[in-house]
Each structure stands twice: as structure tokens, then as C-alpha cells.
Amino acid sequence: MKSLKKAILLFAVTFISLQMYAQRIRVVEGKVPDLKNEKSVNTEFTYDNISVGKFDKEADYIKNKTEEYNKKEAGRGDSWAKKWVEDRELRYEPKFDELFTKYSDLTIDNNAKYTIIFHTTFMEPGFNIGITRKNAFINGEVLIVETANKNNVIAKLSLDKAPGNSFWGNDYDTGERLSETYATAGKSLGKFIKK
């Protein structure tokens, strides 16, 4: 029993280490402003021109999945497509903000000096069918701009392969897996900005 606990702990540590190693944030242009004197930032999210899985265009992915689900059960695909878009505001963005504020020690305020614009460029929704799974992840572009003049880009960062999965593997819902990718992205960006 003792060796089983050690094996599980070793597996968990290795898994978490590999997940953190896979994700990468780097400054592409400019310089991240020193936010030590700031108490808050504003956040905004954009989803234009996203690639999803093997599809270059999100619209093609949505069409394919909608048709697939509607063939299995009338109306299921239409409900899925609606939820696909709604999850952004209801699940992804709040998860990002929650973990970002926790790890950056900043609050979210529309009137803050700086705005962080998180633009999702790629989504891998992954899957979990019980016996096999593929983890979700996202790629994104982060712009740090002046809130009063959003054309003034202070820094541009890239965030690659923010993973998303639940610790116990109960992420059968696409929205759940993807919301975890935004949580990971928020946490990582919060830590990155804080240092």
C-alpha cells in the first residue's frame, strides 16, 4: 500500500511537471510594464480567426460537430453549437480572470491603467471517452495596452499550449476541458506578469 501511494505521488508530480513544461509564454514585442504599483488591470477576450483541432476555421469545426451531433439526436448539435459560443463568457473568461487575479495579486477593473487583451488563436478541444482521452489546450496572443488608448500596445506576448484537464479525469464535457485551459493560461500569465 505504501509503495502504491509513492507510485501515485510520483506519477502526479511527473504529470504536472510535464504539463507545466509544455506551456510557454514569451515576449514577442515591447516590454511588459512593471505593474507593482498597479492594483488592477482590465481584461478583454477576442476569438477572431481561431483554428480548432484539425480545422483551419472555427466555422468549419462548428458546422462539422453540429451535423455530427444532430445525426445522433435531433437538435443536439444546435444546442452544442450555441453552448460552444456561450461558454466563452460564462466559463472560459471567468476562469481566466479568477486564476489570473489569484496569481498576479491584481484585481479586474474596467478603469485600470492597463488592459490585457487575450486573443485565442488555436483550440484543441480534446476528448475523454473514458477508456481513452486527449487533453485540451489553447494557444493565444496577449496584448498589454493602455486602457485609455488601446492602439498603444505596450507589449505583445505569445502563450502556447496552455493545457486543460481535470485532475481526476472527469472532464467529459468539452466546455469543462476548455475552461481548464483558460484557468491554466490565467494562472501562468498571472505568475509571468508578477515576476
Rank of each mutant, 00 (worst) to 15 (best):
N135I: 13
W84F: 15
D171M: 10
P94D: 01
T174P: 03
I62V: 15
A183E: 02
F118Q: 05
E93V: 14
K156M: 07
I116E: 04
I129D: 02
T132Y: 08
D78C: 01
E89L: 11
N149G: 02
K187L: 10
E180R: 14
K113H: 08
L90R: 12
A74E: 14
G186R: 06
S166F: 12
A185D: 10
G75A: 05
K156A: 11
P125A: 08
Y172L: 13
P163V: 13
E146F: 13
A183Q: 09
S79F: 12
K187F: 02
Y103N: 12
E67I: 14
G75W: 03
A136F: 09
K63D: 15
E180T: 04
R88S: 02
I131P: 00
N111W: 08
E146D: 07
P125G: 08
E180F: 14
S104I: 00
K150E: 14
I144Q: 09
R91T: 00
K65R: 08
W80E: 12
T101K: 12
D171I: 09
L106H: 06
K161T: 06
E180H: 14
N139G: 03
S166I: 08
K161N: 12
L157M: 10
K150V: 04
T66N: 01
E98S: 14
D78W: 04
E73F: 06
K57N: 12
S188E: 13
E141Q: 13
G130M: 10
E89M: 10
D87T: 04
